[in-house]
């Protein structure tokens, strides 16, 4: 039987919490470090994020990510793949677990306003 990858990370997090209680610094893998770090957006990237926001506003609350990417391409948004990826990394766009995605307006406002 294969080892569940996601479960492994869940167990890892529990151990981390336990170790933190013991005032020990837990080792952090590169993957975890990268996953937890939200990239800062440049002014240009913030502008593109705002353009993505306008497109997302025309879609359902739970929208198709490939459809958003297509719309970004059609509307000549700058570097659509890279900027869509940034929206995912910053968690402005998050998966809903059923194959669609949602736009987190609070995170978007927080990131684009600073």
């Amino acid at each position: 039987m294969g080892r569940p990858f996601k479960d492994k990370s869940t167990i890892w997090r529990k151990k981390k919490t336990q170790k933190s209680v013991d005032n020990e610094i837990p080792p952090v893998t590169c993957e975890e470090e990268n996953a937890d770090r939200k990239p800062d957006l440049s002014e240009s990237q913030k502008e593109t994020a705002k353009q993505f926001a306008l497109l997302a506003r025309t879609m359902e609350d739970h929208f198709s990510l490939p459809r958003l990417l297509d719309m970004a391409k059609v509307n000549d948004l700058k570097d659509p793949h890279i900027n869509l990826n940034l929206l995912l990394k910053t968690k402005i766009i998050i998966p809903d677990g059923s194959g669609y995605f949602v736009w987190d307006s609070d995170v978007f406002e927080k990131i684009t306003s600073c």
Partner: peptide
Amino acid sequence: LLAMDGGKSVV
């Protein structure tokens, strides 16, 4: 990004 027929996808 894996885009499935019908609009669903997974990253």
